[in-house]
Simulated assay, not measured.
Amino acid sequence: MVSEETLNATVKRMEKFSPDMARLIVEFPYGSLYARPGLDLKQRSLLTIAAMLASGAATQLDFHIKGALNVGLAPDEIVEAVMHCVSYAGFPKTLDAMFVVMKVFEEQGITYGEG
């Protein structure tokens, strides 16, 4: 799950525009979906990244990549999940997602693929 600080910033920004949407972005995914049994948080994070990538929601992807790191996914797991999507979502969406991964890793001080 994303850090409480990141979630709070997103919710506060949305509250100024639409309090109902701010409530829904917390209540539905985190109160209903993430609380369900059957998948752990790492699995849910990987599915979320894949769904965001496939739907072309790159502007929301950084939020969920940070969340995936927060629940303990390793950088290589995130990169592999994104790469796995190339044959299902196509190169343009996958490359857009990989650039978001690269940006988040850079912001977090995570080195990957240097060698």
Results as ranks from 00 to 15, higher is better:
1 M>Q: 08
1 M>L: 11
1 M>K: 12
4 E>D: 11
5 E>V: 09
10 T>H: 14
10 T>V: 12
10 T>E: 15
10 T>A: 10
12 K>L: 02
13 R>F: 11
17 F>M: 11
22 A>T: 03
23 R>P: 01
23 R>C: 01
23 R>I: 00
24 L>W: 14
24 L>V: 11
26 V>K: 07
27 E>V: 02
28 F>E: 00
35 A>K: 12
35 A>H: 06
36 R>A: 06
37 P>G: 05
37 P>R: 13
38 G>V: 04
39 L>I: 02
41 L>R: 13
44 R>Q: 07
46 L>C: 05
46 L>I: 07
46 L>D: 04
47 L>G: 14
47 L>E: 11
49 I>P: 09
51 A>L: 11
52 M>E: 13
53 L>E: 07
54 A>E: 12
54 A>T: 10
55 S>D: 04
56 G>H: 07
56 G>F: 05
57 A>C: 11
59 T>Q: 15
62 D>S: 07
62 D>E: 14
65 I>G: 00
68 A>E: 05
71 V>E: 05
75 P>K: 07
75 P>D: 00
76 D>K: 14
77 E>V: 08
78 I>Q: 01
80 E>R: 06
83 M>W: 08
84 H>L: 10
84 H>S: 10
87 S>Y: 15
87 S>G: 13
87 S>H: 14
88 Y>Q: 00
88 Y>S: 00
89 A>W: 07
89 A>Y: 08
90 G>Q: 02
90 G>V: 00
92 P>M: 01
93 K>L: 06
93 K>W: 03
94 T>P: 02
94 T>R: 02
96 D>M: 10
97 A>D: 04
99 F>L: 14
99 F>Q: 15
99 F>D: 12
100 V>A: 03
101 V>E: 09
101 V>S: 06
101 V>T: 09
101 V>Y: 09
104 V>F: 06
105 F>W: 09
108 Q>L: 04
108 Q>D: 10
110 I>W: 01
111 T>H: 13
112 Y>L: 13
112 Y>T: 10
114 E>Q: 10
114 E>M: 08
115 G>M: 11
